[in-house]
Amino acid sequence: MADRTIQGVGGDGDVIRTFPFPVDLSVCGVGMQVGPMSPGRTWHADAPLHRVHRIDFHVVMLFDEGPVRHMIDFAEYEAGAGDILWIRPGQVHRFSRPDAYRGTVLAMQPGFLPRATVEATGLYHYDLPPLLHPDEPRLAALRASLGQLQREYEDTQTLPLSLHTSVLRHSLTAFLLRLAHLAASSAEAARQQADTTFTLFRDAVEKGFATNHSVSAYADALGYSRRTLVRAVRAATGETPKGFIDKRVVLEAKRLLAHTDLPIGRVGAAVGFPDAANFSKFFQQHTDVTPAGFRAELR
């Protein structure tokens, strides 16, 4: 099957290859597939599953077992039973152990659905998270919808091909509308959580920056993992928690240097540096000027 090569490294020094939708593996050659994930499944005739590659079609995996690690756009995701991974056209990905994947997989060719449906289902909203964790009611509804789609896909006897394809499009649309709603609501919940996490972190830093410069200490005090804190602060400010703390320390140091006559050592002690030399080194690293030089520039 033909493929395209795209600039980028595929893991062993080769360019990342792009693989098209495998029409030859579809029942009746329609622009979609749906079926079980199992050790004997043929995912793609040519794609090297264990290496980084790009696809130009949608893949949705609903897991019955886990955990399974899967790389999408160079980020690792761990999916468990009941979780969903949604890989969109143009994204690079890599399987961990194909024989460990259990559940149901849907693949869909771009252009199989009409434009209005594509827009309604948000198929190309790349800002939405690829890993989804539906609650029990949503998971049950998604399983039922996907099961109906699979039954229609496999039923090639009761309708002529044109009607069979039309029914598939309708069934696929119903499933994707549910999936898109889950993705959008998951993204909103993540944003709200990130906002809350960052707000709590910001307030804690404001109270404690003069004595506490440790990201891990703030994470522990707030009850978050360091990783969660990093994601929340980066989403809110574009910088790391350590960078946020350091900026607040530098700001306070500048205020004290500019508006008081405290000795440099006392200024350092006031922002958490008992050793004057360490304070001067820290200040110069972040401002390209010594504390004394900064004070002199303002007077």
Results as ranks from 00 to 15, higher is better:
residue 243 G to P: 00
residue 281 K to W: 09
residue 289 V to Q: 08
residue 275 D to L: 02
residue 254 K to G: 07
residue 269 A to M: 05
residue 272 G to H: 09
residue 273 F to D: 13
residue 266 R to M: 10
residue 253 A to P: 01
residue 274 P to E: 03
residue 239 E to C: 12
residue 287 T to E: 13
residue 237 T to S: 13
residue 251 L to S: 15
residue 259 H to L: 14
residue 280 S to E: 15
residue 283 F to K: 07
residue 280 S to A: 15
residue 289 V to T: 13
residue 238 G to F: 00
residue 277 A to Q: 12
residue 253 A to V: 01
residue 243 G to E: 10
residue 280 S to C: 09
residue 277 A to S: 12
residue 273 F to Y: 15
residue 263 P to I: 03
residue 246 D to I: 04
residue 236 A to G: 04
residue 248 R to Y: 08
residue 276 A to W: 02
residue 233 V to R: 00
residue 246 D to V: 06
residue 254 K to V: 04
residue 270 A to I: 01
residue 261 D to T: 11
residue 285 Q to M: 12
residue 252 E to N: 11
residue 263 P to G: 03
residue 237 T to P: 00
residue 253 A to C: 02
residue 247 K to S: 12
residue 244 F to W: 15
residue 276 A to E: 11
residue 260 T to P: 08
residue 287 T to Y: 07
residue 271 V to P: 14
residue 263 P to C: 06
residue 239 E to R: 10
residue 291 P to R: 01
residue 233 V to A: 02
residue 256 L to D: 08
residue 242 K to H: 13
residue 280 S to M: 06
residue 247 K to D: 15
residue 278 N to W: 11
residue 285 Q to P: 10
residue 286 H to G: 02
residue 285 Q to W: 12
residue 290 T to Q: 07
residue 247 K to C: 09
residue 282 F to P: 09
residue 251 L to N: 14
residue 243 G to L: 07
residue 244 F to G: 09
residue 274 P to L: 01
residue 261 D to K: 09
residue 255 R to P: 05
residue 241 P to G: 08
residue 247 K to N: 11
residue 262 L to K: 09
residue 285 Q to H: 13
residue 237 T to G: 09
residue 259 H to F: 14
residue 286 H to F: 04
residue 284 Q to S: 10
residue 288 D to S: 11
residue 256 L to S: 08
residue 268 G to I: 01
residue 271 V to N: 09
residue 269 A to F: 04
residue 258 A to R: 07
residue 240 T to Y: 12
residue 284 Q to M: 07
residue 285 Q to G: 07
residue 257 L to F: 06
residue 266 R to P: 04
residue 288 D to C: 06
residue 260 T to K: 10
